Amino acid sequence: MVAALSPPRILPSGDAAITVEFARTIDAAANRRVLALDRLVAGEALPGVTETVPTYRSLLVHYDPLQTGFDALGDQLTELALRPLPEATATRRWRIPVAYGGENGIDLEDVAKALDITPDEVVKRHVGGDYKVAMIGFTPGWSYLSGLPASMEMSRRQNPRLLTPAGTISIGGIQTGVQCLAGPSGWHLLGRTAVRTYQLGRDPIFLLEPGDAITFAAVDDKTFAEQDRAAEAGEVVAELIS
């Protein structure tokens, strides 16, 4: 017998959005419910809904208050959220190339020391992980991935950097991530990828979507430079393997 799902919290977010919250912490089961509800909302075409934004543990639903209201939409979202979860569906799986260490991954040595392993072992464990895009946010294309091996979990940096390179692959807490644009970060920088998860003028502009599966592959600096030039010209570079 399938256990009944617990109802989510329905929270106002300003006067034109609702947060449907499934958990208070990062949780894989909650993220599955978030992504399932996101797909249901898209399929139901609820009146007044203008945009949805999935996160690790909640779904933000923007709506037009001239077409629907908080109470009515909240009831509809609750009903959808309590429907049985669908069977696991096929997901896209991407292989993303990464140049680890050196100037591309300036924290690799420090991470190895903190974990009491070699830099090569850090790379081996990171490449060996099986990841899922849990959410996209912070800056365009910034992809937060669940699935970091427990042996690599570590606190974020005490002093965040004001600027880190575009394409940085980093770890922080129980997460790893793909940073598309240059920007601030308190995570530990392991390497860089030439893959642009966000690129204006390319179709698609956003490469990854919540729910996509990700694996990493180590490449040398020469290959990274070649791929970076190709990506700048609009090539996807990442390999869609299923």
Rank of each mutant, 00 (worst) to 15 (best):
V98C: 10
S185I: 01
G183N: 09
A99Y: 02
S185Y: 03
T168W: 08
G183C: 08
A114F: 00
T215N: 10
R157Q: 11
G105F: 04
A166H: 10
A182Y: 03
V195K: 05
V178A: 04
Y144T: 02
T118R: 12
I174Y: 05
A112T: 01
H126F: 11
I174W: 06
E153R: 15
I96A: 08
G172C: 13
K124P: 00
L145Y: 03
Q179I: 01
G186N: 04
V98K: 03
R196Q: 12
M152C: 10
S155Y: 03
N104G: 09
Q158P: 01
M152H: 06
V98R: 08
A194C: 11
S185W: 06
I171Y: 08
I171V: 15
G167V: 09
V122G: 03
F138M: 12
P210C: 13
S146I: 07
M135N: 03
G102K: 03
A114Q: 14
L190C: 03
L200V: 11
D120L: 13
A213L: 15
L208V: 06
L200G: 00
L207G: 02
V133M: 14
P165K: 13
E109L: 06
T168M: 15
P119S: 06
G141M: 10
P97W: 07
N104D: 08
H126D: 06
R192D: 01
G147E: 10
S170N: 12
I174M: 12
N159D: 11
W142M: 13
V122A: 10
T193Q: 12
D107T: 01
E153I: 02
G177Y: 06
L163F: 00
T118N: 02
T139R: 12
I169C: 11
G183F: 09
Q199T: 00
M152E: 02
G191A: 12
L200C: 01
L163S: 13
G211C: 11
H188C: 02
